[in-house]
Computed example of a mutant assay.
Amino acid sequence: MNRRTFTKSLLSAVPVAGAFGSGAFAQGLRDITFVQPSPSAINSFPVFVAIGEGYFEEEGLKVTVEAINGSGAVLQALSAGQAQFGRPGPGPMLAARSRGVEAVHIYNVAARSNFGIAVQEGSPIQNVEELRGKVIGTGTADGAEVGFARNVMTSVGMVEGKDFEFLTVGDGGPATAAFLNGAIDAYSSSTADTAVLNQRGMAVRDITPAEFGRFFGNGIATMADTIANDRELVEGWSRAFARGHAFSLDDANRETVLKHLATGNPQEGEDKEFQSALFDAVRSKTIPTDTSNGYGWYPAEVWQEWHDSLLAGGEIPAPLDDLSAAWTNEFAAIGNKAIGG
Rank of each mutant, 00 (worst) to 15 (best):
V65M: 15
L258Y: 06
H260S: 11
P174M: 09
V156T: 08
G219C: 11
T289C: 01
L11R: 14
W306D: 05
A326R: 00
N151F: 01
G54Y: 10
L278Q: 14
A41M: 02
R3K: 10
V63Q: 11
I68K: 09
L310Q: 09
T328P: 01
G244I: 12
A110Y: 15
H260L: 11
T263K: 09
V146F: 00
G147A: 10
V282Q: 04
A178G: 08
S22G: 08
E273H: 07
A175C: 02
G139W: 02
G213F: 02
F241Y: 15
T168A: 10
G70P: 07
T33F: 05
D31C: 01
V204K: 04
L310N: 13
S188D: 00
G139C: 10
L233M: 11
Y298K: 04
A210M: 04
Q120D: 10
S113T: 08
P88W: 02
N293F: 06
L11V: 11
A228H: 09
P92M: 10
G60Q: 08
A195N: 12
V14G: 00
A210P: 05
L261V: 01
A178D: 05
D163M: 05
G219Q: 05
A95R: 08
A177P: 01
N114L: 09
N198F: 01
E268F: 06
E232H: 07
N151M: 13
A111I: 03
P39A: 08
L233T: 07
V152N: 00
G147N: 05
I220Q: 12
A149T: 00
A67Q: 05
V119Q: 07
T194Q: 13
G91S: 11
G86D: 12
D31H: 13
A281H: 02
L78Y: 12
A24R: 13
F247C: 06
V16R: 14
A221Y: 06
G172R: 12
A318T: 11
V257H: 08
G157P: 05
A19N: 10
R132M: 09
L278H: 08
S292G: 07
T208D: 00
G219S: 15
V302M: 02
S113C: 12
A326E: 04
D31S: 11
Q27D: 15
E270P: 01
